[in-house]
């Protein structure tokens, strides 16, 4: 199988910060807003280099989304950032009315997604955000897998004209995709070709999926690993092509079942290519305090969890 090298753990939110800075240098219309979480969102360098284009909103997320919409209407390219829960659940109606409905050119920068923000616990964690954003007509939902891909996705989001939900996280995770990649919105990436089973993964679970594929290879099982970096619009062609070939699939994500990538792929395959599916996700639960590693283990969101799901799936083939 294809070898991927972890060049060292890095947090995807820093990939966002680096991408924001580069997008800001390339286009003076790029502005950044936050609700008292400049450091957490890694906006410090952008704010230092472009003080006028950094807009501190204070702890008032609803107004931040409206102000971002106003800035977009006036021709700016705003990235409005906070923790995933506070830029989705807390402001769902603001995003619906001010961003999605009018296809206003706002980028929702969503950090600390999933349970792996860790010790803060379930008030600050979310495994419902993808569901909320997917439900909005026309919203692009991007969930990159590592630092380099998050940086590239941020640059792509700035160039794209329309609402984008860009999801990333707090902990350091393996950085293994090319530093010079160009991110193509809506394109699934085949990271490993295989013939027995497809593993669709998104976010940092893509690395876990590659680990699972390696373990499965040792047992003689050939797993195709596909990075679904753009959850909406889903790369339907790539999903159907792979499952038509392998005949069975697993979907892995740091999100609950309801409304997540698993349901997105299920809905597509039910219509176009019905095959057995198994899921690695948060189920129907809230998170809790703990280190990211402990939580990943507890919720089964890791290579071992994916291997088990693949074995369940293969029995149903």
């Amino acid at each position: 199988m294809k070898k991927y090298i972890d060049t060292g753990k890095k947090d995807t939110r820093s990939g966002f910060g680096a991408g924001l800075l580069e997008a800001g240098r390339a286009d003076e219309r790029v502005v950044a807003l936050t609700a008292d979480l400049k450091g957490s969102l890694k906006m410090d360098e952008f704010a230092a280099e472009f003080p006028e284009r950094f807009i501190q909103c204070g702890i008032a997320e609803a107004n931040m989304i409206g102000a971002a919409a106003g800035l977009a209407i006036s021709g700016k390219i705003p990235f409005a950032g906070s923790f995933a829960e506070f830029v989705t659940g807390r402001v769902y109606d603001q995003i619906r009315q001010e961003v999605a409905y009018g296809k206003t050119n706002v980028k929702i920068a969503s950090s600390h997604a999933g349970i792996t923000l860790g010790e803060d616990g379930a008030t600050h964690q979310t495994m419902e955000d993808i569901a909320l954003m997917r439900a909005l007509p026309g919203m692009v939902v991007i969930n990159p897998c590592d630092y380099n891909q998050t940086k590239a996705a941020t640059i792509a989001a700035a160039k794209y004209d329309g609402p984008v939900y860009l999801r990333f996280g707090r902990p350091g995770v393996p950085n293994f995709t090319p530093a010079d990649q160009v991110f193509e919105i809506g394109k699934a990436l085949v990271f490993n070709e295989g013939s027995d089973v497809t593993i669709f993964a998104t976010g940092h679970l893509v690395w876990e999926a590659l680990g699972a594929a390696e373990a499965l290879e040792a047992e003689g099982i050939s797993a195709e690993v596909i990075d679904i970096a753009t959850i909406k619009p889903l790369d339907e062609e790539a999903v159907i092509a792979s499952v038509s070939k392998t005949g069975v699939a697993v979907v892995a994500e740091e999100h609950n079942m309801a409304g997540g990538l698993g349901e997105a792929i299920s809905g597509l395959l039910a219509l176009k290519c019905p095959k057995p599916l198994e899921f690695v996700n948060g189920g129907d639960q809230f998170g809790e305090s703990g280190t990211p590693a402990v939580l990943m283990e507890a919720f089964g969101l890791n290579a071992a969890g994916i291997v088990s799901a693949v074995k369940r799936a293969l029995k149903r083939k």
């Binding site: 609803a62 931040m64 919409a69 106003g70 209407i73 006036s74 001010e98």
Partner: peptide, 19 residues
């Protein structure tokens, strides 16, 4: 801009003003 879900327009106006 769309409006009707109350309380939101002043934020949008402020954003345009800042822009």
């Amino acid at each position: 801009q769309a409006s009707g879900s109350l309380g939101q327009g002043l934020s949008v106006a402020a954003g345009i003003a800042l822009g």
